[in-house]
Each structure stands twice: as structure tokens, then as C-alpha cells.
């Protein structure tokens, strides 16, 4: 066990855990931030996607000891009140079915738009391919990303 000070959603949080513990389980089991989901544990499904230093990262493969004081953002911290353009676009297109993978999809999409505000279809597919939606809401996700891109541009 070791003590870590983590910078999560703009707050410093202290946890005492084994250094090998992935951030996913630190968030879920120790900090009650349950929006980040467990799906596969091997960085193949994207359900656990968070932002570390603004980049999309699979939290199931990131040990707490490797984070240091980098800024971590989870779905709970993406916006104050669910009003990030990507979240709003998800609402507009009523994207979800079961909803389980969508926090990960939103975190991947928002990281994509941050680095590439107006992605092509191929660029969307390229950066979203690591996020599985078992219900098959992919076409809506793509539409929502385009809506979010357009709305961000107009904002």
C-alpha cells in the first residue's frame, strides 16, 4: 500500500492503495466516481476512457503509480452540468441504448474534438475505433460528434 495525491476533476484526492492498482478501480472503488466503466480490463473496449493531461486514456491499464500530478478528468468532471458540447449532442441525438459504454465514448469524442475540432468521417472512425458499443449506436455517435463539432465551431 502507498499513498497517492491525485488531481481529479480539479480536486486533489488522497488514496491509499497498492501502487499497481489501475486508476479505473481507484475511481470506482475508492473515490466513488462510478461513471468510468469497467468493460474488459485490457484496453480493448474503451468503456473506461478518461482524460489524462487532456488525452484520452484507458484507465483500466493505467496504474495509479504512473499518474503523478497529471490532471485527470472523468465523465463526472467533463462539464459542470452535462453541458459540454459533446454531452449536449448526445442528448440531442438520443444516442444511447443501454448506455453503459457511453461515458467512454463521450470521453474519447471530447478528446478527439479538442485536438481536431472538425474531424472527417475517417478521422472519427480512427479515433473512436477503440470504443465498442455492443448495442450498435455507432451511427448516432458519429452524427453526435459532427453536431458537437459544428456547435463548438459556432459557439
Amino acid at each position: 500500500m502507498a499513498s497517492f495525491n491525485l488531481n481529479i476533476n480539479g480536486k486533489t484526492q488522497q488514496v491509499d492503495v497498492d501502487p499497481s492498482t489501475p486508476i479505473l478501480w481507484v475511481l470506482r472503488d475508492h473515490l466513488d466516481l462510478l461513471g468510468t466503466k469497467y468493460g474488459c480490463g485490457i484496453a480493448q473496449c474503451g468503456s473506461c476512457t478518461i482524460h489524462v493531461g487532456g488525452m484520452a486514456v484507458r484507465s483500466c491499464q493505467l496504474p495509479v503509480s504512473a499518474v503523478g500530478n497529471q490532471e485527470i478528468t472523468t465523465i463526472e468532471g467533463l462539464s459542470e452540468n452535462g453541458d459540454h458540447p459533446v454531452q449536449q449532442a448526445w442528448l440531442e441525438h438520443d444516442v444511447y441504448q443501454c448506455g453503459y459504454c457511453q461515458a467512454g465514448q463521450i470521453m474519447s469524442a471530447s478528446a478527439l474534438l479538442k485536438s481536431n475540432p472538425n474531424p472527417t468521417d475517417e478521422e472519427i472512425e480512427g479515433s473512436m475505433n477503440g470504443n465498442i458499443c455492443r448495442c450498435g449506436t455507432y451511427t448516432r455517435i458519429k452524427k453526435a460528434i459532427k453536431t458537437a463539432a459544428a456547435n463548438s465551431e459556432n459557439a
Binding site: G35, T36, K37, I75, Q87
Partner: peptide
């Protein structure tokens, strides 16, 4: 008509909803 999913806001903000989230 088309009525939006009643859990939509919770889904996009990551509120606990699923069995795995229960504590």
C-alpha cells in the same frame, strides 16, 4: 411521437445507474 430517453442526462454525466455501480 419521439420522447427522449428518461435516463439520458444521467448516462451522459456518469451518474451511477447500473448494477456494477451499486454500493
Amino acid at each position: 411521437t419521439s420522447i427522449k430517453n428518461v435516463d439520458g442526462k444521467k448516462i451522459i454525466t456518469g451518474e451511477p445507474l447500473f448494477g456494477l455501480d451499486f454500493k
